[in-house]
């Protein structure tokens, strides 16, 4: 996966992406025991000009020029199917902005913070998000003050209480 991360770093360095971070099951795995997943979710902030449409086309084009083409909703980069998800709400924008930089072998990458992953799980609300939330609560050693602040600011405290009763 290190090679995949190097490609993502090069996309950011070259300005194809403004910022990226690992999310989804792989990000959760950073904090918990490993969980089965077949794809790598990458949250991205794309360069935009005023009035321009938010589109992944320039990103896919840059990847094609590096020899990686899309297969359905994924792009296989160095053996790993990567799904790019442009940030689509305030919580995700904040999560990407506050993602932590972590080493991976001899490169570095960014991973969403556990507290943001928990809030995103509550907001998204699928069964697998409940499972992920339980593991994060049990194993991730989250900062409760930071988490509460996120939940309050994004109007998720009520749903959090319901889910963690």
């Amino acid at each position: 996966m290190e090679e995949t991360l190097r490609v993502l770093n090069s996309l950011e360095r070259d300005g194809v992406l403004r910022r990226y971070a690992i999310g989804g099951a792989m990000a959760a795995t950073f904090y918990t025991e490993p969980v089965l997943t077949f794809d790598l979710d990458i949250f991205v902030l794309l360069p935009t000009s005023p009035g321009a449409l938010l589109t992944l086309s320039p990103l896919y084009e840059a990847l094609r020029s590096r020899g990686f083409s899309e297969e359905g909703e994924f792009v296989k980069i160095e053996g790993v199917p990567v799904q790019f998800l442009p940030v689509y709400n305030d919580l995700l924008r904040e999560a990407l902005g506050e993602a932590r930089e972590v080493p991976y072998g001899s490169t570095t990458t960014r991973v969403l913070r556990a507290e943001h992953l928990a809030a995103i799980a509550v907001q998204t609300g699928r069964q697998k998000d409940r499972d992920r939330l339980r593991m994060l609560v049990d194993q991730a050693g989250m900062n409760r003050e930071y988490l509460t602040d996120i939940l309050v600011r994004h109007g998720l405290e009520e749903k959090w209480r319901e889910w963690t009763r």
């Binding site: 996966m1 290190e2 792989m26 795995t29 950073f30 904090y31 918990t32 025991e33 490993p34 969980v35 089965l36 997943t37 077949f38 972590v102 991976y104 072998g105 991973v111 049990d138 194993q139 991730a140």
Partner: peptide, 21 residues
């Protein structure tokens, strides 16, 4: 055991995920 697995390094966890795959 789950806590030990959670404490592994990120690359070690990725290797386990590939085994699970």
């Amino acid at each position: 055991r789950r806590r030990k697995l959670a404490a592994l390094s990120f690359p070690e966890k990725v290797q386990i995920i590939v085994q699970l795959q």
